[in-house]
Each structure stands twice: as structure tokens, then as C-alpha cells.
Amino acid sequence: MAGWPLLVLLALAALAPGGCYETRYEKFLRQHLDHPGPAGPPGGRYCSTLLQRRRVNGPGRPCKPVNTFVHAPAAELLALCAPRHGPALRTTAAALDVTACRVTGGSVYHPCAYRAARRHQRVEVACEDGRPVHLSRTL
């Protein structure tokens, strides 16, 4: 019966806010996918708001210096990682709409201020088990 209390503790931890496990693919989607993207040209407020809403930045955490959002359907990036075997890094054949967010001057901790640049570039991702898990770079 020693295992019963441990099972109850694990169940409670899983139900607690923030206690849920996030896969690398889910983290990738949270941090780098925003489809269809901003309606107009993105400004620094777009980056600051989205990075805070997506829990990339927040109170007590340092500002992420650079983050890129890809404005394409998740299925397009999933297709890039199929088949499961092959090179770990894959690059889109066509350019996609992306927004590059760079932290401005003195922003180190929340509230973070960003400069946004909309671009049309190819995207390179690292794949794991047939899913994108890391945005390597844009070309």
C-alpha cells in the first residue's frame, strides 16, 4: 500500500495549475506559431503581448532576447518533418511570413519591450519523432 499515497500525490500534481507536462512540440507551437498572424503590420506591442500571453516572458523571468513567430498552419510545419527519418534539420522550400521580435535596449525583465520586423523567409526547424521541436533559424 506504500504506492497509494504516491499515486494520489502524482494525480494532484498533474491537476495543479502549471503541473501539466508540455511536449517539445507543444512548446514549439506555443513559442513560435501564430497563424494567421497579425492583421496589419506588427509593432513592438504585438511581440510584447504575444510573448507574455504565451508564457514565454513573465514576471520574474528575463526577457527572451529574440523570438520568431511563423504565420503558417501547423500542418505545413508538420509536413516538413515527415517522414520521421532523415536529417534532423529541415528547411521549408518556400518562404513563409514570419515576425521577428527583438528585445529593445534596456529591457531585461518584465515588462519586456520589443521591436518587430515582418519578413518573408524560409524557415529551418529541428524535427523529433516527425514533429518540429525547435526553430533553428530563418533564411
Results as ranks from 00 to 15, higher is better:
Tyr114Lys: 05
Arg131Glu: 04
Cys112Val: 08
Val103Lys: 03
Arg131Gln: 15
Cys112Ser: 08
Ala94Cys: 07
Arg102Pro: 00
Thr91Tyr: 07
Arg84Lys: 14
His120Ala: 05
Arg122Tyr: 01
Pro111His: 02
Tyr114Arg: 03
Thr91Trp: 09
Ala116Ile: 01
Pro111Glu: 07
Val123Gly: 04
Gly105Lys: 06
Leu89Gln: 14
Val103Ala: 09
Arg102Met: 10
Ala93Gln: 10
Tyr109Arg: 14
Val108Asn: 06
Cys112Pro: 03
Ala93Arg: 13
Arg131Leu: 13
Arg119Trp: 08
Glu128Trp: 13
Glu124Val: 12
Tyr114Ser: 01
Gly106Lys: 00
Val103Cys: 03
Gly106His: 02
Pro132Asn: 07
Arg131Thr: 06
Ala100Glu: 13
Tyr109Asp: 12
Val123Cys: 04
Glu128Pro: 01
Tyr109Asn: 08
Pro87Leu: 15
Val108Pro: 00
His85Tyr: 13
Arg84Cys: 14
Gly130Ala: 12
Thr92Val: 11
Arg131Trp: 08
Arg122Ala: 00
His110Phe: 13
Pro132Leu: 12
Val108Asp: 05
Val108Gly: 06
Ala126Gly: 13
Gly86Arg: 11
Leu89Arg: 14
Asp129Glu: 11
Ala126Tyr: 08
Ala117Cys: 00
His110Pro: 06
Pro132His: 07
Pro132Phe: 15
Leu96Gly: 00
Arg122Cys: 01
His85Leu: 15
Cys101Ala: 02
His85Trp: 15
Arg84Asp: 11
Tyr114Gly: 01
Asp129Phe: 14
Pro87Asp: 15
Tyr114Phe: 03
Tyr109Glu: 08
Gly105Pro: 07
Ala94Gln: 15
Arg90Lys: 09
Leu89Thr: 11
Arg119His: 13
Arg102Gly: 03
His110Ala: 06
His120Asp: 02
Thr92Ser: 07
Ala126Phe: 10
Leu89Cys: 07
Ala93Leu: 09
Val123Tyr: 05
Ala116Gly: 00
Arg131His: 11
His85Val: 00
Ala100Val: 15
His120Lys: 10
Cys101Leu: 09
Val103Ser: 01
Arg115Glu: 13
Leu89Ser: 08
Leu96Glu: 02
Ser107Trp: 01
Gly106Ile: 01
Val123Phe: 08
Val98Pro: 04
Ala100Phe: 13
His120Cys: 01
Pro132Tyr: 11
Ala116Glu: 00
Gln121Asn: 05
Ala116Gln: 05
Cys101Pro: 01
Gly130Pro: 07
Gly130Lys: 11
Ser107Phe: 05
Gly86Asn: 12
Gly106Pro: 02
Ser107Tyr: 00
Thr92Ile: 11
His120Arg: 15
Ala93Thr: 09
Arg119Ser: 03
Ala117Trp: 11
Ala117Glu: 15
Ala95Phe: 05
Ala116Cys: 01
Glu124Thr: 12
Leu96Ser: 03
His110Leu: 06
Arg84Asn: 10
Ser107Cys: 02
Ala126Arg: 15
His85Thr: 08
Arg122Glu: 00
Gln121Val: 04
His110Gly: 05
Arg118Met: 12
His85Met: 10
Gly86Cys: 12
Gly105His: 08
Glu124Asp: 11
Ala88Cys: 01
Thr91Ala: 07
Thr104Leu: 09
Tyr109Ala: 10
Cys101Met: 08
Arg115Ser: 05
Thr99Ile: 10
Val125Met: 04
Pro132Ile: 12
Ala88Pro: 06
Cys101Arg: 02
Arg118Ser: 10
Val108Thr: 13
Ala95Ser: 14
Pro132Lys: 09
Thr99Arg: 02
Ala95Val: 07
